[in-house]
Amino acid sequence: MSFAITPAAPARQDYPYPVVASAALGPARSRLLRGPCRDEREMPEQIPGTVRVFQRNGRYALTPDVGRPLCTPTVTEAGSVAVVSIRQQLVPVLAKLPSVRPERTLVLRARFRCQVDDAVLVLSSGCWSVEPALVHYLLDDTELLMLGAREDAATSPEVARHILARVTARGDLERPEVSGMTIRLVDLDIFTVDEQLNPTVPGTLDGQFHEDGMDGPEYAYPSTHHLTAAGHAHRSVPHPDDGYDDGPPARHQEAQ
């Protein structure tokens, strides 16, 4: 019986976190008198600052720390492999607040500093992309939603200040929870968008933005109105441990 090695698919530039690449794995190639073993070409590229995590019989495990890891059952019997970033990384998210005035909807734009502490635990909890958990965190506040739904939410500096204060205070007292990951709110700003002019907001990726040395996807709002709270609607949340490392852009791969 012969086996053909299927290389992982070319990278796609959508920069997820923490899973930066993944691939399905077929049966491992058998070797005469040596048992099965996988070829490195079957694996998605592993860049510095990442680890490979294999899924085998519904369980996840890191690459075994042995002399020939690709010939171990953890690897040869795995049905898929994920490359997980263990770098500290800034993750930008957008969260749209409910509004009674669709012509002026409030949108929170936040950045979170994320650090994977246990890649196996992260994947076991079902987190392949942290963004949905961060959006849920921002919107999981009844009082915040009520503030965003006020008639004057998009025009009142007082409402803007209240929203900023509430979200940043909550960031200190109740951080986002993802098993195996440490997350902290870094900064936050508020702007308004006319949903009648931009019905797809938020959710459309449009190139890259560079903010404070950060590279990543940008959500484009061609007709936005920035809301000011005593001159601005932006607040950074400094912390002594904010020595993050964005690292090179992550790459996602899928098996064809």
Results as ranks from 00 to 15, higher is better:
G180A: 05
L173F: 02
L123M: 07
L205Y: 04
E151S: 12
T204P: 00
T168W: 02
C127I: 08
S129Q: 12
M146W: 01
P202W: 04
E151D: 13
H136T: 11
V178H: 04
A169F: 03
D118F: 07
D141E: 15
T200K: 06
V130D: 01
Q196P: 00
R109M: 05
A110H: 09
P199F: 03
G171Q: 02
G171D: 06
V130Q: 01
L197K: 14
C114F: 01
D206L: 08
I190Q: 03
R111Y: 03
V178Q: 08
S124T: 14
L197V: 15
L188Y: 04
A133H: 15
R170F: 05
T204E: 14
T200Q: 10
L144Q: 04
T200Y: 02
I163W: 03
A154N: 06
D172N: 08
Y137I: 03
T155H: 12
N198G: 00
V135S: 03
P157H: 13
E174I: 11
S156I: 04
H136P: 00
E174K: 01
S125H: 11
E195T: 14
Y137S: 09
L173T: 14
L134W: 04
V167I: 15
R166V: 04
G180R: 05
V122I: 07
A165F: 00
N198L: 05
V130P: 01
D141W: 09
L197C: 09
G180T: 11
A119D: 04
D206I: 01
A110I: 12
D118K: 03
G207K: 07
T182M: 05
L123T: 11
D141V: 06
E151M: 11
T155K: 09
L197W: 00
E195S: 13
V122A: 15
H162T: 15
N198P: 00
D117L: 13
T142L: 13
T200G: 02
L188V: 08
L145S: 08
R184S: 12
H136Q: 12
T168G: 08
E195K: 09
G203F: 10
E177R: 14
R109G: 11
G126M: 05
A110T: 13
V116F: 02
G203H: 07
V167P: 06
I190V: 15
T182N: 06
D141P: 06
S125N: 09
S156M: 05
F112C: 09
P202T: 12
L173S: 15
A119W: 02
V122S: 14
E131A: 11
S125M: 02
S156E: 06
V116R: 04
R175Y: 02
P199A: 08
N198H: 06
D140F: 08
L138T: 11
L123Q: 05
V193A: 15
V116I: 08
V167M: 07
A110G: 10
L185H: 05
S156D: 14
R175C: 08
L108G: 08
C114N: 01
A119I: 07
V120M: 07
V186Y: 03
L123W: 10
L139V: 10
A169M: 13
W128R: 12
T192Q: 14
R170D: 10
S125A: 15
D141Q: 10
I163L: 09
V130L: 06
M146G: 00
V122W: 02
A149L: 05
V159I: 15
A165M: 07
I163E: 00
T200S: 09
L145C: 13
T182F: 00
A119E: 01
I163F: 01
V107Y: 00
A154W: 07
R170P: 06
V178W: 01
